[in-house]
Every structure is written in structure tokens, then in C-alpha cells.
């Protein structure tokens, strides 16, 4: 990467090169999801993936989620459109996603995991690709099949989820250069870590509001005395 930068000086051609790299890293996702062991190793260690592509997949994942809630036939999804808040939906997916990445990074760094936070984030984002590829067309399919043919729909849906989970697992394994057993243990540790992070965030915010409340009431008291 650094080599490429030093060679190409001209900004226009540099932009073109970056665009080419971005396109290639997007296309590389097909290799990752079909050959996860090989693909994930090269993704991180051979720099075949880009952060931009990872962001794209995460964004597409959120988009899929929203499209699914809004356009899936009502026969298959009970989405109370009037109560759905898009930001809340995205937040409730994004926040756990990032917290889990963070927790995994925090834990594996201590136990000679090779992955940096960026690598973990990238691996997780690439693992979302099957979800996008299957669930987005399924939205369309849901509108041309009936409630009685739901098994077709549910099988494909579960398949996409299983694929994603498998990819995430392999991704972590390759990123950290762990064995399957160790990866599994660290998945559990990651969940525990995520709980700790959430707890800390809650404590932080409640303390913050208490502290703010203290100063606000002190200010009121002073103003009252002064008047």
C-alpha cells in the first residue's frame, strides 16, 4: 500500500488507483464468502480488503434490514411500520456490532491475537455479505409467494444466517491466527466483554447525568440565594 502511494504522485491517477482498489476489494467479497479460509487470510494479511468496502457492506446490511422491514410482504413479517424508527433499528444493529468488535479486539489483543481492530471490523463486515446477497432478493420473492409456501422463504433465510455466522467464525480464526477451539472460547469471552462494555457505558452515562444534575441544582441554589 505504501509502495503504491509513493510511486503514483499525480492526485488524479491516485484517485483512479484507489477506485480500482475499492472495486477489486468489493469483488473480492465473492471469493471470501465462497472460500472463507483462504479468502480471509488474504483479506487481512495480503491486504486484499479495504475499509471502504467494509463500510459499504455494513451500510448495505443496514439498508437490507430496512428494506426488509418496509417491503417484505406482510405475510412473512409482522413489522408495525407505524412504530418503527429507522434510526432506532440501525442503532440496535450497529451498536452491538461495534461493541462486539471492540470487545473481541480488546480480549484477543491480550492473548496474542494477530488482528488489529481494523482487521476485525473488516472481517465482520465481509461476513455480512451473504445476508445482503440472499435477503435482498428474498424481499422480492416474499411478494410473489404465499403464506403456505413460507418454508421456501424460511429455509433460505436461515441458510443466510448460518452462512454469516460461519463466515464470522472463520474470519476471526484467520484474522487472529487462532485454532477453532480457541476462537470458540474467545467468542464467549467476547460476549462477556461486550456485557462489561455496555455496563461501563451505562455507569458512565448515569454518573454523568448525576454529576450534571448536581451542578445544575447548585447553579439554581446559588441563583436563588443571589436573588
Amino acid at each position: 500500500m505504501t509502495a503504491a502511494k509513493s510511486i503514483v504522485k499525480d492526485p488524479a491517477s491516485r484517485r483512479r488507483a484507489a477506485w480500482e482498489r475499492y472495486k477489486q476489494s468489493l469483488h473480492y467479497a465473492f471469493h471470501v464468502i465462497t472460500h472463507p479460509f483462504d479468502g480471509y487470510w488474504d483479506l487481512v494479511h495480503e491486504h486484499r480488503g479495504t475499509l471502504a468496502a467494509a463500510h459499504t457492506f455494513l451500510f448495505l446490511f443496514l439498508l437490507t434490514r430496512i428494506v426488509k422491514l418496509m417491503l417484505t410482504s406482510f405475510q412473512f413479517i409482522a413489522a408495525p411500520i407505524q412504530h418503527i424508527n429507522i434510526f432506532e433499528q440501525c442503532g440496535s444493529l450497529l451498536l452491538p456490532f461495534l461493541i462486539l468488535c471492540l470487545a473481541n479486539w480488546a480480549m484477543t489483543t491480550l492473548f496474542d491475537g494477530k488482528g488489529r481492530f481494523k482487521d476485525i471490523y473488516m472481517a465482520m463486515c465481509y461476513a455480512l455479505v451473504p445476508y445482503i446477497l440472499i435477503q435482498l432478493p428474498l424481499v422480492l420473492v416474499s411478494n410473489i409467494i404465499t403464506f403456505e409456501e413460507a418454508s421456501f422463504y424460511t429455509v433460505l433465510m436461515s441458510f443466510s444466517l448460518v452462512w454469516c455466522v460461519f463466515l464470522a467464525f472463520v474470519g476471526l480464526m484467520e484474522v487472529h491466527d487462532y485454532g477453532p477451539g480457541k476462537t470458540f472460547v474467545f467468542l464467549i469471552v467476547t460476549v462477556v466483554g461486550a456485557c462489561v462494555i455496555i455496563f461501563l457505558i451505562l455507569v458512565f452515562f448515569s454518573l454523568l447525568s448525576d454529576a450534571l444534575g448536581y451542578f445544575v441544582s447548585m447553579y439554581r441554589e446559588i441563583m436563588f440565594r443571589l436573588n
Partner: peptide
Amino acid sequence: TRRLSALLAALLLLLSVD
């Protein structure tokens, strides 16, 4: 990380407003 924490804070704010 700075960008991340800003994002987190924004999300929390959104949730609490709702």
C-alpha cells in the same frame, strides 16, 4: 477510535431522545 466514539455518542443520544 475518535470517529467511533463520536458515532457511539450520537447513537446513544438518538436512542434516549426516542
